[in-house]
Design a protein around this nucleic acid. Structure first.
Length: 576
DNA sequence: CTAGGGTTAG
């Protein structure tokens, strides 16, 4: 037995496993060693030598499979590329329910999380209660996590609330669930409740969720506090934590602080560390530093992967380093990294912004995979910037073929026509939008003032001080007009749907946030705003003027990058 | 006839 055990240890490839199994079968010992069979099963079912068809075939040879043997297969399938298979096996298994234990449920739930199978998760949930595993804290945590991952945070919260005793993992699961489910404010609130009210000590997993929420909100003050805690508690010995800190500083607008952490890490850097930092420089338009780091990485022991290339390409794109970007893109295949849709998208954007519209179009045509909506949107955007009506129409046609309902696509096409004063065509686009029930993604922005996050949506009147904010904005517009500002109306598609308020256009969220920042922070303090969409051209002009007239540094993070406005200029050099 | 299950950065 012991010798078989050690033999099994050496079976690192599937062939050797098969050989061992053949030996057991031919010597007639196979069915007398159920535990060995289980280990064999697990070896076949789980990575790194996973071969699930083989594992399931092996399983079918068993006369009366034990719970453990069932579990091995369910677990393996749950981690495989077909998690729905695990759910199917679980269902079969539940027909003989005495076989199911808490682990089976745990694996099946994991499968639901990966397959985004909400109703299956609910079914398993009710069976968990039926089978009497309802009090199992580990299972409940998994359940909570699954609900969060399949997008039902209400259910996740409910599971959490109903738990008698909660250990740190329960809190962590909900905090990261909220952070990953686009509810960063609630994630931070829960983090605070956990540490301040319940007196629980955040661990390395807790801070990851909290930092991610700070990154989303651009909540620098809160992020710094968490960083201080991390240092005090020596949680910075975990690479994963350092990576999250770097990302937080970068997304809160401080590439230098991010870089400081990067350089002073006591633990070793991994691939993600490098990628995070390169992405940080990219977001800040610091193409040279990004490329320098990419070069260093190439020399270090970590090998750039697809994300590294994407980050470096983004850096070239934001910094207008067209030649470098093209060179990098062309070098990918030679380094064994196949470009994916995102790489193609970035290069198309890079060429398009540089006015090389035809080349961008050719890149799309040369793609080995199906060009998605984003590619055509990018080309449409470039065509608009360079007033290339033919290409804009071509791209729009593609978008319509692909069934786009994005407001932006229609607006861009309309803008191209408007720029050429083709008003009939503008009207046609507007009609098409009405017919297609085009949805506009609501824009919103955040600003942190004295550690409190304020959220604004376009045309927002929900803030307690909204009258004051609107008055400030009116004052701003009045003052900057003296510097030659004139609203660019031909770029704005008016009356999109009747219910669209005039306000939404005159009082966009980023302007409101900046106005609020001017009122509520001291002179000389930089103002930081986070926006969920890309900044619009008009706001860009206005904020540049504000930075000059009010002598304030204003930092805006939009969906893709940072804009640092100072003395009437922007760090993106109007290239974004 | 053992242990194996929960939260985790780009």
């Amino acid at each position: 037995m012991a010798s078989l055990d050690s033999l099994l240890q050496k079976c690192t490839s599937l062939t050797s496993i098969k050989q061992l199994q053949a030996h057991l079968l031919t010597s007639g010992k196979f069915q007398f060693y159920p535990s060995l069979t289980t280990i064999l099963l697990e070896r076949c079912a789980l990575s790194p030598v996973a071969n699930l068809p083989y594992a399931t075939a092996l399983f079918r040879h068993l006369q009366n499979p034990s719970t453990n043997q069932w579990n091995a297969v369910v677990r393996g399938l749950a981690q495989s590329l077909q998690p729905t298979q695990a759910i199917a096996w679980y269902k079969t298994m539940s027909q003989a329910s005495q076989k199911i234990d808490a682990l089976t449920c745990s694996f099946a739930l994991k499968a639901c999380a990966r397959a985004l199978a909400f109703s299956e998760a609910m079914q398993i949930h009710s069976q968990i209660v039926q089978f009497g595993f309802g009090a199992d804290v580990l299972l409940r945590t998994t359940l909570l996590d699954v609900y969060a991952k399949v997008g039902d945070l209400g259910f996740a919260q409910k599971v959490f609330d109903e738990m008698g005793q909660r250990d740190i993992a329960c809190w962590n699961a909900l905090i990261s669930g909220l952070a990953q489910g686009n509810r960063p404010t609630e994630a931070i609130a829960l983090f605070q409740r956990m540490s301040e009210e319940e007196g629980l000590k955040p661990n390395e997993v807790t801070v990851l969720g909290a930092l991610s929420a700070c990154s989303q909100l651009g909540a620098l003050k809160r992020g710094e506090k968490i960083h201080a805690y991390i240092m005090d508690e020596k949680l910075d010995m975990h690479v994963i934590v350092c990576n999250a800190v770097i990302d937080m500083y970068a997304k809160c607008g401080f590439e230098d602080k991010a870089y400081w952490v990067f350089e002073n890490m006591k633990c070793g850097k991994n691939l993600i560390t490098w990628n995070t930092m390169i992405m940080a420089f990219a977001m800040h338009g610091n193409g040279d530093k990004a490329l320098e780091l990419f070069g260093q990485m190439d020399k270090s022991e970590v090998c750039p992967d697809a994300v590294s290339y994407l980050a470096a390409l983004c850096a070239c794109n934001h910094a207008g380093l067209v030649a470098d970007g093209v060179r990098l893109f062309n070098s990918m295949a030679g380094h064994g990294v196949a470009p994916n849709v995102k790489h193609y998208g970035t290069v198309v954007d890079l060429l398009g912004r540089a006015g090389r519209i035809q080349e961008a179009y050719e890149i799309i045509n040369s793609m080995p995979m199906f060009p998605d909506v984003v590619l055509w949107q990018t080309l449409l955007g470039a065509s608009k910037t360079y007033r290339n009506v033919e290409m804009a129409e071509l791209a729009s046609r593609k978008l319509i073929e692909l069934g786009s309902k994005g407001c932006g696509d229609f607006v861009l096409l309309s803008n191209v026509y408007a720029a050429h004063e083709r008003w009939d065509d503008v009207g046609r686009v507007r009609e098409a939008m009405k017919k297609r029930d085009v949805k506009k993604i609501p824009g919103f922005g955040y600003i942190e003032v004295e550690g409190v996050i304020h959220k604004f949506v376009n045309g927002d009147q929900s803030h307690t001080n909204w009258r004051e904010i609107y008055a400030k904005l009116d004052e701003i517009m009045f003052r900057i007009k003296a510097y030659g500002y004139a609203a660019k109306t031909n770029n704005v598609l008016h009356d999109i749907g009747e219910e669209e308020k005039e306000n939404a256009l005159s009082y966009p969220c980023e302007k409101l946030a900046v106005a609020f920042g001017l009122i509520s922070t001291n002179e000389g303090t930089p103002i930081q705003v986070i926006k969920n969409l890309r900044i619009c051209e008009d706001c860009h002009v206005v904020i540049k003027l504000i930075s000059k007239v009010y002598n304030r540094e204003i930092i805006v993070r939009d969906r893709a990058r940072f804009h640092r406005f100072k003395e009437g200029l922007c760090s993106c050099r109007d290239y974004w």
